[in-house]
Design a protein around this nucleic acid. Structure first.
Length: 592
RNA sequence: GGUCCCGUAGUUCAAUGGAUAGAAUAGAAGUUUCCUAAACUUUAGAUGCAGGUUCGAUUCCUGCCGGGACCA
């Protein structure tokens, strides 16, 4: 039983014995820093059963707790708030139990399994800032669930099929002159992206030309030769035309190689990849089966629909009249396949932008209609767009922030500032390079993860790259300082002796109470799919530690027991910071 | 036309219905004989508007204004 539970139990006993009634809920919260104490009982809701004013209610409960428990040593009452001061011995006990725990803050495997999908890019454009938020978020949520005892399968669906990839293929055939990543020195995804842009240029020009010749706009868009070529390639691909499929494989291969390099720099990985080209037919089958079962219906033109009016939505098309599938069809197939591959997963988490909220609402409803019980457990991890000072990122206006470029900039900035501070004088080149990456990528991840995922956020390329304040480097620096202390502390005493300490300084007590909160924050983060809770916890802990570090001497302390307590607290803070940052995918250094 | 999300210091973000709304940046002023000054201390600065529910509202409800997304 942890401290909060124990305290709540005592409060329940107090209420029982004082008012001869039981409270339906006990509101226990951290005490505001302006008052003495660590835990605060909100007494307003208790006045109904105490039949006393809030102040008196708080007073008698405080009195009872100090007299009848060994936990509470003092209390004070401000309005209806009962602030409790716990015995320092209690905190020492809490700290000792944290120290003796095998892997503090990591729940042993429970046997439960989930799947987390993230990234899932199109194969015609390089990854950008939005994908960074997506990948960091999905990867972090997966890690958080792992720390909560789940077996997690990290997957993505690659949108490798459709007209968009045929556009790049058409443009490459027309203008590529056999260019390859090797011949051009371009990353594969960048090269294919280049031809996607080429297509767009050529297409626009052809439409304009036809328009000038008097062809109506709609007609011109269909008749533009390059578009006809792309459409023809898609048709040939679906017929498994050898040359087309071969080119498709080659160009997609370039893209995957390019993506792989980007993922490596991001520090994310996947346990399994799914490809739409392999799942869309399964979706089609499932939809046709649904028609037979009467779950879906066919219209006169042959198109297949689902009626969601009962659920407050509209009718939704699942197969077009020409039999081709839509996104929804593919997603049905993919979901099915995944549950076949991993029968033990209880839930799929989809990390996809909030503009797809309607889509996933519909998808989960359809899966439920098809009779799959797990549909109810599926979750759309919806996140807000990343805006630039100029507004939305738009590829047409060239305002897209490229993922590779941004990461390189961050590392460069980290290197610049680190060199200016003279921090790498005693490091090897390899160590220094590793540190620059740790800082640069860490700063970027923390920046994108500290915000509540649901919220839209702003990224200013010029101002966002900061390595001071509410940032990863602040926490990394704190960790490096701690490691320095731990290295120096050759005189550490055994843990048994810490149990004899019966008085703590306020900073020591505060750090212990923060350490004790970690498991709860981890659960909160998992429940709300929100790494920001972990990010802000790590920041608070580092902030508090820096104040401790500044105001309390360690090695000049003459009392050896106190000295080793401070070292032990430091070391444990370092461990928890490292674990928490690890859940965000941010590494912490030994020195910086 | 319908549905959904968001409006908090100059700026970027916090705040399970709780106390005097927290941080960080940018601004002003300090702290290196002492474990790493990427730190610490002090200072100034904010809940879009109008109602309602509540002992108590940034949070819940209604309307309006402003920004965004989706569906047809």
């Amino acid at each position: 039983m942890n401290l909060n539970q124990e305290l709540k139990l005592k409060i329940e006993q107090a209420i029982n014995s004082l008012f001869n009634a039981s409270a339906d809920s006990i509101q226990l919260q951290p005490t505001s820093p302006d008052f003495e104490g660590s835990h605060t009982l909100v007494c307003f809701p208790l006045t109904r059963i105490s039949k006393k004013k809030p102040e008196e209610t708080a007073q008698v409960i405080g009195e009872w707790l100090t007299e009848n428990t060994t936990l509470v040593i003092r209390y004070n009452v401000v309005k209806g708030f009962l602030n409790l001061v716990l015995d320092d011995k209690v905190w020492v006990k809490v700290f000792n139990s944290i120290l003796t725990e095998n892997n503090y803050g990591v729940v042993p495997p429970s046997g439960q399994e989930i799947m987390v999908e993230y990234s899932s890019p199109n194969t015609n454009k390089p990854l950008h800032l939005g994908h960074l938020r997506n990948n960091f978020l999905g990867w972090s949520v997966a890690s958080i669930y792992e720390a909560c005892g789940y077996k997690v399968h990290r997957v993505q669906i690659i949108n490798d099929r459709g007209i968009h990839i045929c556009k790049s293929m058409a443009a490459w055939k027309l203008y590529g002159n056999g260019e390859t990543p090797e011949s051009s020195g371009l990353k594969g995804d960048k090269l294919v992206g280049k031809y996607y842009v080429e297509f767009d240029k050529a297409y626009k020009k052809e439409v304009a030309d036809l328009n000038a010749q008097g062809v109506a706009k709609e007609q011109a868009e269909k008749e533009a030769p390059i578009m006809k070529m792309a459409v023809d390639m898609l048709r040939k691909w679906e017929q498994k035309d050898e040359a087309t499929v071969s080119l498709w494989k080659t160009m997609n291969g370039w893209v995957y190689d390019g993506f792989e390099a980007t993922y490596k720099q991001m520090g994310v990985h996947f346990d399994k990849l799914y490809f739409e080209s392999e799942t869309y037919l399964l979706g089609k089958e499932e939809v046709l089966k649904g028609v037979e079962q009467g779950v879906f219906f066919k219209k006169e033109d042959g198109s297949v629909w689902v009626d969601l009016k009962e659920d407050g939505l509209d009718e939704k098309v699942l197969l077009r009249s020409d039999g081709t599938s839509v996104y929804m069809t593919q997603d049905i197939g993919t979901a099915m396949l995944r549950f076949r591959d991993f029968p033990k997963i209880s839930r799929q988490v989809y990390t996809v932008g909030n503009e797809q909220e309607y889509h996933f609402k519909v998808l989960f409803l359809i899966l439920a209609k098809l009779g799959y019980a797990w549909a109810k457990e599926c979750y759309h991890l919806s996140y807000g767009m990343v805006d630039l000072p100029s507004g939305k990122m738009k590829s047409r206006e060239g305002t897209v922030v490229d993922a590779d470029d941004l990461m390189a900039d961050m590392i460069g900035e980290a290197e610049k500032q680190t060199r200016e501070l003279g921090k790498i004088d005693e490091m090897s080149d390899a160590e220094a390079q590793d540190l620059f990456e740790m800082i640069g990528i860490g700063a970027l991840k923390f920046y994108l993860l500290k915000v509540d995922p649901k919220k839209r956020m702003m990224f200013n390329p010029n101002e966002s790259i900061q390595l001071q304040g509410h940032t990863a480097p602040f926490i990394q620096y704190t960790h490096a300082r701690i490691r320095s202390i731990v290295r120096k502390a050759a005189t550490m005493k055994s843990k048994e002796e810490l149990a004899n300490i019966d008085a703590l300084l306020p900073h020591e007590q505060k750090l212990i109470s923060l350490l004790a909160m970690y498991p709860d924050r981890l659960q909160d983060a998992a429940k709300s799919y929100s790494p920001s809770i972990i990010a802000n916890y790590a920041y608070d802990l580092a902030k508090e530690y820096n104040q401790f570090y500044q105001s309390i001497p360690i090695f000049s302390e003459s009392n050896e027991q106190k000295l080793s307590l401070r070292v032990a607290i430091s070391e444990e803070v370092g461990k928890v910071l490292s674990k928490a940052m690890g859940l965000l995918g941010v590494r912490v250094p030994e020195r910086m």
